[in-house]
Design a protein around this nucleic acid. Structure first.
Lengths: 359, 359
DNA sequence: ATTATTATCTAATACGATTTAGATAGAGGC
DNA sequence: GCCTCTATCTAAATCGTATTAGATAATAAT
């Protein structure tokens, strides 16, 4: 692991508040008060305030993050724990989260924790106080215990895109079950009866069955018997979607439509269909999930279940900050965002698009 | 900006080294020595070491990151500054960087600095000592001065995917000029003469002209006059590629091939071509740049200029750590990685693929 | 002239870990 | 019994900032 620390030496020549104090001819206390904007209320004269600000600027003083958070018990950092950086919707979530955090004076520390080792490290860092709160996307199952420990220690934790795994943990998520239902219902309304489903079979992530549940509910409601041969599970990736689709195509009696776990997998599935000469949407209708921008750029353009990635990022950040700044009423344990059908080309005719809104 | 800090209060009940010391019946010094694995060499008996380790485990002791880095002048964190999280190749770079960092006992703090405001914040954080070194991808022009200040203060800085903007800043980059040359040459070898180019016109990022330079060199070498009407610039995004392609299609005399700045833009361009009924590769050959996995899943599969994203991430991390741990010889200012042509479908016939290797 | 009040500023401490510079005790040499 | 040496451990100082609890001097009130 980590080698021995190198000889302790002050390498960089950053100015300290003491040096600012000396240059301005005041005490460290005054410097602290002025630079934290408490000079006015606490009776530091305007003239002194200006002198301190000037000295700080001249020395390009930047407070030491370590010293400040040691003293304040606050880092003003929110950690964003992601397990899949290649999810195409992450960028939007992160962008919105960033904006929301900034607005409240926080910054975001994105920790990608793909490997077990990184994950262990992330836990150590968090429990070492590297951030004030944590937002977790798609947590792996074995992290649940760690998260709970952090939450029990008073750290605000918000899970995105998943059910709250514990009463101490908030969740900001999308109505995935309804999404699965809406997608499948769309296919049924278009006249399909043999409707396949490609699901996510990630070993590591917490089970996410909601989409599949919605699929099953729509089938049942329409009086269509569930056929286990029409369900294929694979890793949630382009390649996973590809191989799951090939598996479905190997069936004796092929489906005429498929509801896919994510747009990413759906794009893999489209590729498999093209390779096997199956025309979309004529011979196979395909519907994805997530509404990523890329879906509008593939052939054919992907019909999908859309939701606001930006809302997820923003609400997650606001939930964490709300907890940190002690808002009056306890926050709701779960915030569930609506989904909406986004009809493009990959399912053919758009006649059912009108009243499938999930909001 | 940041509201006033809340009342100072010890909210979380993390154990401190003093509590571990008490439980183990030793001094804080001993705890520190033992937990930093210096107990052996400094004469702490095996029995005491075991007692301390046990006490630490029982209290689930985690050293305070703030206190430790305040004292050590080391955070063991490397910051990774990204300006575009939606670049599809970032995930691979980040994955490799993570692995390399972990191996040496460091962790990665990904800071997405899309907005100016975030960027200012990032600079403040870094200059406040939140990380020991920085890796910057695609730095905006206005950040160069900030980066230089950090570098002059002794912070190791490595730029990825770009020329080193300053002698104090290292670079790990790809031979983009050669990539542009190889791509264009491929099109020429396939018999094309009217070869268009879609470039990146990002206002904010540092100018990156290498790809275009390679394009120009290949044309000149083949005795083809450069035609400014065949060059379109746009934002480096799916939509940018789309609109640039439409612009090119509006020409009186259309090109027969196009070399696109990135795979992402190329996918946008493919979409424009399909929309306008231009068949690829028959009526228009398209070649991209980056070798992202997605390129193998679109219609038609995208021919591209590939390079190792993983090497970039790994080398960047190793460069930073090398500087931090004071390696003997000064590191090379630039490390330039090779590119290689990856022939798929979007340019038609593959006959020129053999000897265009860039390595 | 004394006391209270206000305006302005500061000395000293605390945060938690690491490190420097010893302290203590026992063993061995004489 | 005194001294040295080694093995084992520790007291105190330190990192840079924020905060608590005053200090000081000028002004106003009596």
């Amino acid at each position: 692991m980590a080698k021995r620390a190198l000889p302790l030496k002050r390498t960089n020549s950053r100015a300290t508040s003491a040096e600012v104090a000396k240059l301005a001819g005041v005490s460290r206390t005054t410097v602290s008060l002025v630079l934290n904007d408490r000079g006015g209320e606490l009776g530091i004269s305007a003239e002194t305030r200006a002198r301190v600000a000037d000295a700080a600027a001249r020395l390009s003083y930047q407070p030491s993050h370590a010293a400040r958070s040691l003293r304040r018990w606050r880092t003003n950092v929110i950690a964003l724990l992601l397990y899949t950086l290649d999810s195409f919707y992450n960028a939007e979530i992160i962008g919105a989260a960033h904006a929301a955090a900034l607005e409240r004076g926080y910054s975001l520390n994105i920790m990608s924790a793909k490997f077990d080792e990184v994950q262990r490290r992330a836990y150590a860092l968090l429990s070492g106080g590297v951030a004030d709160g944590v937002i977790v996307a798609a947590p792996p199952a074995d992290l649940a215990a760690d998260l709970k420990k952090l939450a029990d220690n008073g750290m605000p934790i918000v899970v995105m895109q998943h059910h709250s795994p514990d009463p101490a943990i908030q969740a900001v998520r999308v109505d995935l079950e309804r999404g699965g239902y809406v997608a499948t219902r769309h296919l049924i309304d278009l006249g399909h009866r043999r409707i396949a489903h490609i699901g996510s079979a990630s070993q590591r992530l917490l089970k996410r069955r909601e989409r599949s549940d919605g699929y099953a509910r729509a089938l049942q409601e329409a009086g269509i018997a569930a056929d286990p041969h029409l369900v294929a599970m694979a890793e949630p990736s382009l390649a996973g979607g590809f191989s799951a689709m090939e598996e479905l195509l190997a069936q004796d009696e092929r489906p005429s439509a498929v509801f896919v776990y994510s747009d990413q997998m759906a794009i893999g599935a489209l590729h498999a269909l093209r390779k096997h000469g199956v025309r979309v949407p004529e011979a196979m209708a395909v519907i994805g999930f997530d509404g990523i921008a890329l879906g509008g750029f593939v052939t054919p353009e992907l019909t999908t279940v859309d939701y606001s990635r930006a809302d997820i990022g923003r609400l997650a950040v606001e939930a964490v900050i709300g907890r940190l700044e002690g808002e009056a009423e306890p926050p709701p344990r779960e915030q569930v965002l609506p989904v909406r059908l986004l009809v493009r080309e990959s399912c053919g005719g758009a006649r059912a698009a009108i009243d499938r809104e999930g909001a």
